[in-house]
Design a protein around this nucleic acid. Sequence first.
DNA 1: TTGCGATGTGAGAACGTTACCACATGTTCT
DNA 2: AGAACATGTGGTAACGTTCTCACATCGCAA
Lengths: 365, 365
Amino acid sequence: MVTKRQATIADVARRAGVSTATAGRVLGGYGYSSGEKRDLVLKAAEDLGYRPNQLARSLITGRTRTIGFVAGDIQSPFFAKILRGVSDVLEPKGFGLLITNSDETVEGEMESIRLLSEKQVDGVILSPCDVEEAAHLRKLVQTTPMVLIDRQVADLDVDSVGVDSVAAAEACVRRLIAEGHRRIGMVAELQFGPWTDIESFVRMVRTNPDGIGAIYPSWQRFMGYVRAHDACDLPLDLSLIARVNSYSTEDTKATVLRLLGHPDGPSVLFTADGLMTEGTMMAIFERGLRIPDDISLVAFDDLDWMSFIGPGIDSIGQPRRKMGEAAARMLIERIGGFDGPPRREKLPVRDNRRGSVCVLATGRD
Amino acid sequence: MVTKRQATIADVARRAGVSTATAGRVLGGYGYSSGEKRDLVLKAAEDLGYRPNQLARSLITGRTRTIGFVAGDIQSPFFAKILRGVSDVLEPKGFGLLITNSDETVEGEMESIRLLSEKQVDGVILSPCDVEEAAHLRKLVQTTPMVLIDRQVADLDVDSVGVDSVAAAEACVRRLIAEGHRRIGMVAELQFGPWTDIESFVRMVRTNPDGIGAIYPSWQRFMGYVRAHDACDLPLDLSLIARVNSYSTEDTKATVLRLLGHPDGPSVLFTADGLMTEGTMMAIFERGLRIPDDISLVAFDDLDWMSFIGPGIDSIGQPRRKMGEAAARMLIERIGGFDGPPRREKLPVRDNRRGSVCVLATGRD
DNA sequence: TTGCGATGTGAGAACGTTACCACATGTTCT
DNA sequence: AGAACATGTGGTAACGTTCTCACATCGCAA
């Protein structure tokens, strides 16, 4: 492995017979330069195969043209698609993209942020893993522009991108009720959150919804579920909630199997996100149930395979790529100096109907 | 947005009453330092919230502790999973990960490499989009360690990670033949490659296999398909090859639909990668065919949903995460100074049997 | 002619680290 | 006792850019 030394501005300047200042101006595209010297410098740079060293440039300009992305887990299709949107906006503008995983732990997130800020990124896009404990985020925003994605954090006034989970879930469950479903199961990981018991959360939703601060998307979707029941005067039956203990498909599958085993089980399942949906599919497959004949299904978050298995799965599709693009665009505006108030962008969801919901009744009774 | 100035080593040194050299030694963990001064410096650093500026450090040490990853398309599960493996190895060692997409074009790849090398990455993991045109890669390896993933490049002697696609495909097709299938369809994007007509490629495989240089995985899998036929004395029928014109699900679907429309069609389909499999599934779904009753299916590359749709889909699973880990490990060894001959690591594949192949006959005839 | 802005050039400082050297101490081995 | 060596410290030169000057020259209006 040969390690040839890269040519520097000084090398180019020497070869072109000009000062490093002049060579710098030509190659960096700033300040004045005459056509004559310009050609000399460009020729010399070409000959030497000169490549600017962004490190040195960044050190003095104070901007790296690199942004950081802290994902929960990059291998999940949710983050992967967002990432693609981010990089689509960044690449044409010459920005680099540094990624890390938080693995949904605060420690991982802090470590990620430490790494990114030591590398002097110009901005950070992050999906916070804790909606309350955010001292480290509060510290970060003092020095670096930040955009939150998917989730928000209490008392952290920064730009964010997401969807209106409460409204989308409510609309979805209302539709199920309208189509005659009375026993609607919900599959969600509701372990970590502001409430340890669901009853008191439901009470809060009914009595003082404004008092609910920043909560995870899963809780928001559950909130929509509750609201739809209340709006349609359908009594809540919390035994229909498959409350998954950990964020894993195995646990989800086990919990859903238990729910399906009940004598007076649900006629339809509403899953709160992609991973819940996968675990639910496993449980349905294992019990040999057919969709929608034996059980109906609607999923929050659309996944590739939902359109090509028979029948297709109904889903609420989040515009993941667009979310990434919006986050990147907002961040670049901030980096460019935009200093307006925090923007909370809510993107519209897509209502995918493919035939996984059995219509038990139509019209209004 | 407040922009507080970060504390520097000079600030810490002043506050601790020592020289910048001493402060640097303590904070950088190199050279000597007494316990007394150490405590002073650490206290001062703590007070000021000192964070080392990796830019300045990298400029003088010549190493950034950042590596670059050039993927075809990060949003595809193939690359997303690999990426996860890479970052799992990198993160504990304190390396950053800079990602770019080539979108499978040489221009995109060159642009990616330009960006990465200007940012002075210590090494690059790359899935080359062209197995022949590689002048830019040859130039890169002169200055930067590189590991190829999934594909190899002719005359480029660097470390690489992948699977033995030829052998895996051959074993898979042999099994189909053993189970009684005689008309085996293959779905693959074989547009770009060394051969424009398939006949001459087949001739080459039969007469001079060693003369075939570096080829894309799709071609390798097709090669395995040919070899299995030859080994089992099953005549090749090239009308069974769904040769997709572009790397898109829509095109794949259309091509497969055409194949399925033929009077004497295949009894089983063998797909060359994840995207081909998705397009094929769409075609099968559109025609209302049932797996495996109406048509059997085996896929190269395992996808999440294959295990939980009924019936499961048989697949050849690549250890994607392990591939990423291996690539990262090899790269770090090179960065650490390892200077042995290029290693071509072939990881074993997984043979997933789930019931998507109809057994037409057993035993050997 | 003088004044003045636009254009062009080079010397040298600056960015925040680590590398290198000189110069102190001790401590241990001949 | 003197040499050799590990330990500890500070000054200052790197690293490769851009930034800030000072200082030209030119054209043009007053």
